[in-house]
Nucleic acid binder design. Structure first.
Lengths: 154, 154
DNA sequence: TATTGTTATACTCTATAACTATA
DNA sequence: TATAGTTATAGAGTATAACAATA
């Protein structure tokens, strides 16, 4: 395989994809700019996860975000400081605590939803419904393929 | 509009997309983990841009990355320090300099390409060629729709 | 002894503002 | 005066390692 030129097409295909993925950084920065100053993206993601999946523990947050627990711990701490999330005792394991979205957290989430929706509606005005849905589906599948791709020192 | 329930579908559509976009952070972190320690993603993007678009000035880099010039300036400085990029005088404007990918930069780019390609080939093993291409196209279009979405204080 | 979670430290990415040099 | 670019500073995100409490 190494000496063949036949792999150029495949290599190019992934190269294009990698470049487009890097370019997505610009999209994420654009989304981040519409967030309220007191609710940066890390906090916003925590709220969205709790809203979508329901109450969960720290380990599950870090798993869903595919980040180290030290990272999710800080994000969650920020949301708790703002009163958007509360840590309830876990009857099954006293080391752990159950994270629960508060009413104030739901209110903040409503603000986030509105801002992001406005932003996307403006930016994707020329996209058809089918294309938006197709992109959403492919992104979900991409995230799924990557799975929990954290650095496992094993 | 506020009192109607009819907007639920559209709102939900964008909400899903926003959530998937956030999840893409996990994908980007996964890609970042395969990069060499001496070439973080900022540097890698600079090299890829110069390779793909050819020589350019700082302003064009910040435009393509959709970041402030102070940011791209630091990324470029890092690549120059490593000998991957050189700053050539711009005959048309002595304030500016032309950024040029060196041979060492091309070599580093080859390393990056190999690592990213391996990673994607492993991760997207079950994807069809058509789906990979479709995702690539949609990401490019998404980036295009966002355009130069930097904060313009005007 | 292993696991859940927190905290300290360090590094990358980013934006704002102040600055230099040139147009 | 305006523009191209650099640098200083500050803030967010992340990972590693050391630590606490509990299993």
């Amino acid at each position: 395989m190494d000496s063949m030129v036949g792999s150029v097409d495949r290599g190019n295909r992934y190269e294009n994809l990698a470049r487009q993925m890097s370019a997505i950084g610009a999209v994420k920065r654009g989304l981040g700019r519409v967030l309220p100053a007191e609710c940066p993206s890390g906090s916003a993601i925590v709220l969205a996860l709790l809203n979508h999946h329901g109450d969960m523990r720290m380990g599950r947050v870090s798993e869903l975000m595919a980040v180290d627990m030290s990272v999710s711990s800080r994000h969650v701490a920020h949301t708790v400081d703002r009163g958007w999330v509360e840590r309830l005792p876990d009857p099954a394991d006293r080391r752990s605590r159950i994270l629960h979205l508060t009413r104030a957290g739901e209110d903040m989430l409503a603000v986030l939803d509105r801002r992001l929706t406005d932003m996307l509606a403006r930016t994707l005005a020329e996209w058809s419904d089918d294309d938006v849905e197709l992109l959403t589906t492919l992104l979900a599948r991409l995230r799924d393929s990557f799975g929990d791709c954290r650095a496992h020192h094993a």
